[in-house]
Design a protein around this nucleic acid. Sequence first.
DNA 1: GCCATTTAAATGCCAGACAATTAAATAACT
DNA 2: AGTTATTTAATTGTCTGGCATTTAAATGGC
Lengths: 243, 243
Amino acid sequence: MKIDPNSNADLSAQIAKSIRDAIISGDLIVDQRLPSEAELSDQFDVSRPTVREALKRLAAQSLIRTQRGATGGAFVNKLSFEEAYPQQITTSTLLLSMNAVSFETACEARYTLERSCAPLSALRRTADHLATMRAEIHRQSQPGLTDEAFCASDVAFHRALVDGAGNPVLSYQLAGAVEAMQPLMNMITFSARDRAKIIELHTALADALEANNAIGVDTALAGLESYTTNLAKSVMEKRKNKA
Amino acid sequence: MKIDPNSNADLSAQIAKSIRDAIISGDLIVDQRLPSEAELSDQFDVSRPTVREALKRLAAQSLIRTQRGATGGAFVNKLSFEEAYPQQITTSTLLLSMNAVSFETACEARYTLERSCAPLSALRRTADHLATMRAEIHRQSQPGLTDEAFCASDVAFHRALVDGAGNPVLSYQLAGAVEAMQPLMNMITFSARDRAKIIELHTALADALEANNAIGVDTALAGLESYTTNLAKSVMEKRKNKA
DNA sequence: GCCATTTAAATGCCAGACAATTAAATAACT
DNA sequence: AGTTATTTAATTGTCTGGCATTTAAATGGC
């Protein structure tokens, strides 16, 4: 393997790209062992620290894992949905916070995606999903719950709804949309009245899901979206007037 | 700052996590300069190569960028949607190829998400989006087009549809779902008859979008999904009988 | 005041070494 | 022979020290 010395990219970035491409194309398959760092240094004609920087880049993307010891080395990692979740959530969160995405835009995206899962979830949700949602509703009605805990419970509730669709690809894609909204929602202070209204809608949602009523689920979600949006709007308004 | 020597994680991983957390929490803000590698070595009490490995991990996630020279250093990067796209697509693609996700499951997720964008796109699509879609339809009807090129055009067509919703968060989330399907679709051989049918559905879709007819768009998408799924099923069947 | 040069600070890269870990090979012992 | 203890070898993890390269600012000459 060779590296272009005229490229303006770091050597470690070029090497990482070379190996990453090999993984994507299938040249390197899951659990296959990469050459040792010393061998890679020879092959790419760079020093070991440079190879290591390249490997750390790949490790940061969960594309490889490393083991120490005699039979150790770097191995192509089987990227699992579980591993990809946090990455997806971190990225989505930072995208929202760094790009001045309005609450409305984020909210619209989140509920648009979530509503698309509703029919499938109404069809396929298991008793487990329903139980999780009922439990979260119960938690949400506890007095003395902090806004953060309320929002976290809200996220758990909605993730159960999404998971009810029984499609891991959907769950993965939705994780970013649903979880990344939490920091934004945390900025809203929920009064007792707000919570009661949200719990009411959550209950309607769970009821509809229990009855396999897709339209009812969609209606409840639409209600939640408009209520959340309006709530956020009024909170922002109040803050603006105060300042 | 301190690092736990009892943790079984690499020092570079711990340092990367520490800095990453500072970025997520807002302790480090966009375009802020991190301490130099030498200063970080002192602060974390590790050597410079270890610090560098940590920084490369963060760079691989586009959380920082580095500049050489007198006023250079590592800066917190403003994560843009454009930067996040390829990451998202790579991850989604690998998730599908490494986890034996069935074509049906992937297809269901993709069309479920895409159909959720349809009403918004019917409402907001610009002339530009329509023009892109018409151009791709034209390209798809060219004889002699390879299956790969046909699929790539298909992806471009659908991305224009999604972008028509005018919500960058939606576009980002959908990018993974739509683009990651391409390698799977490339495995299907599209006969002339298949292509004609798909182009017919694409045209119906564009027509409905032009008329701001949300229901028509949804119908066309539903038709596409079932046609694609059946096509894939018959191709797989044929291959199985052959072998 | 403007341009060329020097300087200093920073990242990029390398060579070599040692520590820590791990599995396999070997030796010792029963 | 079988089992246990020891040694060995391979590999990653980390450190030290250094040099090359890049870049902006400081300096100096005109």
